[in-house]
Design a protein around this nucleic acid. Structure first.
Lengths: 206, 206
DNA sequence: TCAATGATGATACGCATGTATCACATTTCG
DNA sequence: CGAAATGTGATACATGCGTATCATCATTGA
């Protein structure tokens, strides 16, 4: 019996899948995820409907793949935002992380719009959430909790704050602010002011 | 020319409309607003599809009416929650308001689910938001800002907090926590702990 | 009493969607 | 080489949706 590693012969499957997945994200960022029909995605990606079906047997597979791509982009943006703040300290990590996911510029608006689309999709199709695994907010919370605890040790944060509880509050606050921006209740700058007010209150030696 | 006040002859229109609108809210609370199709609403209300069309010429009219009913229920729950906390003080108003809209029990879960459905609907159909007028979070924020300022005058809240900024943060925090509960990230009790931690930090004489 | 109007039922229409099918071209490899 | 596998196109199918149409019965007012 021979072992055959059946590498795709003609085209790079992963590249095609990415091309199509990115097209879906583009639609989700502009017209909303509910407009991301198979036909619309095909048109946006510049391929035929058949090809979308070919590379993603079902729509759920397409959504899952696009969600993974979105996760990569979010992670990359958070990293870049932290790096841009100079030396890595607990404070810059917390600031950089939260401001990165707040919809303040074009890129973050796109990412937040797409992410919100997926998040609300899980409300109606909980199976998708299960198939996707650990949620992004969870990862954010544990990251922030660690750095808040570190800041506490350094005396930058009051000793009586509970890091996990506070990290959860910050993530929820940021998500809520993001929703209010997408909903047109306020703009990104106003949301940023609110977030920075809270962060300034937290990172203040007692 | 005679003026004819054409009161409905056979049935009470407002009652029928309410019956149908409540059916939609029930569906939105359980299966999600995207499952609230005209036919499903008709079945849930125990009437024929034709009747839903008759009392609401279009689906948007039905959604708008149901949203108004939901607003009434939310307002009623907030009032009841404040009353239940005993004497009306700035602190009880803030506590009562925010804990009322956090999905901690059956009723608040239902209300939050339905409200979230409408909120996310506005993401895709911004016209509906415009036709609906002032958003619920806006009203909550100004209410809370007033009471935070009052608490400040009474010395229950530190003098350096900005009431509007803080009120906005609290509402966003509560919305974010609500989303995390509906998304299955944590349960209502955990969300309540996070909210109370923040509130306890705010209402603390300096 | 009887025509007009209010209320309700049954059913059809047009459209969009996810998915499936059939056909054909191109490449690969024994 | 030539058959099998891979890649792509065109189109069909079944379903669910909001809405529209036609018909029927009950009530009302002159």
């Amino acid at each position: 019996m021979r072992i055959i590693i059946d590498v795709p012969k003609r085209v790079d499957h992963e590249q095609r899948r990415r091309q199509i997945g990115e097209a879906l994200l583009r639609i989700a960022s502009t017209r909303g995820l509910q407009s991301a029909t198979m036909r619309e995605v095909a048109a946006e990606a510049g391929v035929s409907l058949r090809l979308v079906q070919y590379y993603f047997h079902t729509k759920e597979a397409l959504l899952l793949a696009a969600l993974a791509y979105l996760g990569e982009q979010l992670t990359e943006r958070v990293s870049a935002s932290i790096r841009a703040l100079g030396p890595v300290t607990p404070r810059t990590v917390v600031y950089g992380t939260l401001t990165a996911v707040l919809p303040t510029d074009d890129e973050s608006v796109r990412l937040t719009r797409a992410y919100t689309g997926f998040y609300t999709l899980v409300f109606s199709e909980p199976e998708m959430g299960e198939r996707h695994g650990a949620t992004y907010p969870d990862k954010l919370e544990s990251l922030l909790a660690r750095h808040i605890a570190a800041a506490q040790d350094a005396g930058e944060v009051a000793a009586d704050v509970d890091p996990p509880l506070t990290a959860a509050a910050l993530v929820a606050l940021t998500n809520g602010l993001g929703s209010s921006v997408l909903g047109g209740q306020r703009n990104g700058a106003a949301a940023l002011r609110i977030l920075e007010d809270q962060l300034g209150r937290l990172f203040r030696a007692p």
